[in-house]
């Protein structure tokens, strides 16, 4: 596993987090450039497999970004995503990867600052571990 490039994969719900990321760009809010956004229709589309595969391919951190609880377009998608992230955390711990490297975050489509902050936090966390 290569950790040198320290990429972070962010699975972003097209309804909220992806828009927040777009907005961050539009407002020129700077955040670390090692994040790679994958657009998904709903955070509920992310399965444990996707999270684990991301680590297998060398990602240093995975963020699952969905809508605010209670405001998911697909009603329960973000809650299911949260459960899966929790499950993936446990699996990662079992193989000796810090569970904090995967995180579920809830967004509204205008939360550009929060998007940038979450990326920064994840980068910091990974730095600390090295």
């Amino acid at each position: 596993m290569t950790r040198e490039n320290k990429k972070i994969i962010a699975f972003c719900c097209a309804e909220s987090a992806y828009r927040a990321a777009d907005r961050a760009g539009r407002l020129r809010i700077r955040y670390p450039d090692n994040v790679r956004v994958i657009r998904i229709p709903c955070a509920g589309r992310v399965s444990v497999l996707h999270i684990l595969k991301a680590f297998e391919k060398g990602a240093a951190g995975v963020l699952v970004m969905g809508c605010q609880e209670g405001a998911c377009r697909h009603l329960t998608g973000n809650i299911r995503a949260k459960e899966r992230v929790k499950y993936a955390k446990d699996l990662l711990k079992e193989v000796g990867i810090n569970g904090q490297r995967v995180k579920m975050v809830n967004f509204g489509p205008d939360m550009a600052q929060k998007f940038a902050r979450e990326i920064e936090e994840m980068v910091e966390k990974i730095k600390e571990e090295k």
Partner: peptide, 22 residues
């Protein structure tokens, strides 16, 4: 409504969501 929750949860991976498949 094309959310893909079913595709993520199917234990037999029988559901394919074209455009956002595994």
């Amino acid at each position: 409504d094309r959310c893909g929750i079913c595709a993520a949860i199917c234990p037999a991976t029988a559901i394919k969501f074209e455009g956002y498949s595994d």
